[in-house]
Structures are given as C-alpha cells and as structure tokens.
Nucleic acid binder design. Structure first.
Lengths: 205, 205
DNA sequence: GTCATTTTATGCGAAACAGTACAAATGTCC
DNA sequence: GGACATTTGTACTGTTTCGCATAAAATGAC
C-alpha cells in the first residue's frame, strides 16, 4: 500500500501482529477487564507506543473488533462457495466458526463480538453499532447464498432466504455462546449437524 | 421461612429488592465495569451493608446470576404448559424471553447470563460453570416438553427431543444477542415466529 | 554533519477502585 | 434498665487504573 518511507524513527513492531495480540487479551478478558498493563505486556509495547499506533483503549478495542469482523467475513465467504451444495456450505460455516470459537489457552473463547462486545453494547453506543452491523453483515452474506439456492432449486421456492439466513445465523450465535460456556466439541458439532439438517432438510418439502 | 427475630439491629432494607437493583447494574454494565459505587448508589446501600448482606462484588454477582436463573426457569416452565400445543408453548417461551430482553433504560439489555456472564466465563471458572449449567437447565426443560410431544404424537417419533430442544434454545440465544445488538422488536418477533415454524413444522413430515 | 521528525523508554499524577476499621445507631434478651 | 448483637454511616488505606509529560533513540532531509 504505502511503501513511501516516512521521516523520523521507524516503527519497531508490526502493527497488525500487535493488534492480534491485543485482540486476544480483549477476547479472554473483555474490554473492561483488560488493562493497559495486560495489553502492553501481551503486545510487548509500552503505553506510548500503543497510544501512538492505535489511540486510547477504546479505539484499540474498536479496531480489534473491526479486524475480527473482516477476518470472519472472509472465512464466511470462503465457506459459502456456491459451487458446493448448500448443505456442505453450512457445514463448512459451522466448522469454521467452531475452529475459531474453541480456540483458547485457558478455556474456549467463543466469538469476540458476541461474547465481549455484547456487554459493552448497552452503555457504549459505538460498540453496539459495530455489533449490530456485524451480525447483519453475516446474515446478509448467508442470505445471498440462500437466494442462489432458492433460484437454483436447491431450496423450495416458498423458502424465504432472509428468514433462513437468520436461523442459520442463530445456530452460529448459539455455538458461540455455548462454546464459551464450556460445552464440549462433540456437543457443539452435534448441534451444528442438526442445524444443517433442520435448515436444509425442512425446506425440501 | 425464617420469622425468628434475630438479635441486634434489624436490617433496614429488603435484601431481595436490593439484589434486583444490583442485578440491573450488572445487566447494563457487566461485572467488571460495575463499580461498588454504582452498586451502592443503585441499591441505596453503603458498602458495609452490601458486604454484610452479600459478601464481596463477586459473591453479589453470582447471587444475582443465580436469582436471574431461577426467575428465568420459572418463566420457562410456565410457558411450556403441556396442556397447550407445542407451537403455542414455543411462541410463549420466545415472547417471555423478548419481554425480558427488550427491557432496559438506555438500550435493550438482552440476557444477563448470555451477555454479561459470557465475558467473565473464560477467566472466571465459577461464572463459566453457572453459565453452562443454566444453559443446560434451559435445554433440559424444553427437552422434557419435546419428549411429551414426541410421545403424544405432536412430533414425529423420529424427532429427537434433545436435538430439537437445543435448536429451540439456539433461537433464544440468538434473540438475546440480537436484542442487545439493537435489533428492533419487529425483527426479533419475526425471527421467533420463523423459529417456531421451522422447529414445529419440519418434524410433522 | 546538523536539524527535523517520529518512535521508544521511564516514570509520573490524578482519579477510580475494592475492601475494611471504627464508632454511632438500633434493636433483642435477660 | 442494662448487656449484647447486629446493622449503618463515615472515612480511610493501599492498590490499580488510564493517559500523558519528558527525554532519549533512531531515522530522513538538506
């Protein structure tokens, strides 16, 4: 993007790597319980460097959320490859989600947005807005695939793509919550399978 | 329960009312962002009274979670009255859930367990345990109703009560998250309706 | 080489935080 | 009425918090 070398002392760290480390801290502890000391230790950056690169704690959190959202959208789009059957698409979506949700050093971390942005959403309007937009974007991406399925005959014409997409998302939301609540991988995979079955099976009439 | 008057100065407040006020603070801000000053102001209790009645902030939070869990189970049990059709039962469950989730002074608060206990669940083992147990209890209560429906012929015999119960819960989890993310009542009610339809409609074969 | 510009390191400071000590208040028990 | 037990109000302590001030380090421009 920008290879133009700026004047002054060059940055001694990779901003994206630091953002990922900060994201992990927020993911484990949430926004409020994550201190700048935690963030500083995890990123190996002292506070002035953090402030210089990202602004204050709130800006850093919002940037971490945004990066997470974009990564998630990428995973989702790849899983929804329309050259594969809808059933496989949904299975891939859930498998991809579980791979993310079940990761974690202490315990499964679930979804960064659902499990940490939700708390702040009441008092913190910008977080609520990011969370709402993210959920809608996910719905929209699945809806696009559902629309294709309805047109190609994979789904009954009577099926409503938006409704089915929201229900497909609902299963994913539940997986996120249950993962963080400590449910086993086996349980979560069973829920994912039955979700695929219910959504893809029911609309064949 | 205990009408035996204890010696010493009697308590000048209703512990349950105070617990409800504290619960509301936790509900809006989450555990970490809720300060003892917030809790003290909301309950009209000074800190020593709070500590005397509930213990430290963590114990107060756990007690609020437990009370919320019991209240929710009560609402759920009443909604699942087996003398009504399963369809009506699920609709009542979701209506009851939305009545709780959409309440809030600043913005919709969603579910106390899903939206505030989730954050703490990674680092705080006892919270994770309460959250997991609560979700399972909810599943179990719905599963009981599904089992009745399967035996009475309301559902196809091939339907698996546990699986259907988990999917019914999944819709509820999604409603909780989406409410806190700012989705409109209309949207949430539409999702609830389609959830009922999918779960009750698909298994009639 | 010297200056300008940006990043890094140390550490400060004011505010918020959780939890408690202490004494005054208010009741029961004998 | 007096001893005892518990709650309540005020104020405190030590810690943690965030954000920044200041100065040293490292580079480009000239």
């Amino acid at each position: 993007m920008k290879d133009e070398k700026k004047r002054g002392r060059p940055r001694g760290f990779d901003a994206r790597a630091a953002l990922d480390k900060a994201r992990d801290v927020f993911w484990d502890r949430g926004f409020s319980a994550a201190s700048l000391d935690n963030l500083s230790a995890a990123t190996n950056l002292n506070r002035p460097s953090l402030y210089g690169a990202f602004g204050d704690k709130e800006a850093l959190y919002l940037e971490a959320l945004e990066a997470y959202r974009q990564d998630g959208m990428e995973v989702l789009k790849q899983a929804l490859d329309p050259s594969l059957p809808l059933r496989d698409n949904l299975a891939r979506v859930y498998a991809g989600a579980l791979a993310i949700y079940l990761h974690g050093e202490i315990a499964a971390r679930g979804c960064l947005l659902i499990s940490t942005a939700s708390v702040e959403a009441v008092e913190h309007e910008r977080v609520r807005e990011v969370l709402g937009r993210s959920l809608n974007d996910f719905d929209g991406e699945i809806e696009k695939r559902m629309r294709i399925a309805a047109e190609s005959g994979e789904l009954a014409e009577s099926a409503d793509p938006l409704t089915l997409a929201r229900l497909a998302s609902a299963v994913m939301h539940s997986l996120a919550v249950r993962a963080r609540a400590g449910d086993s991988r086996e349980t979560l995979e069973a829920i994912a399978r039955s979700g695929v079955e219910l959504i893809c099976g029911s609309t064949h009439v």
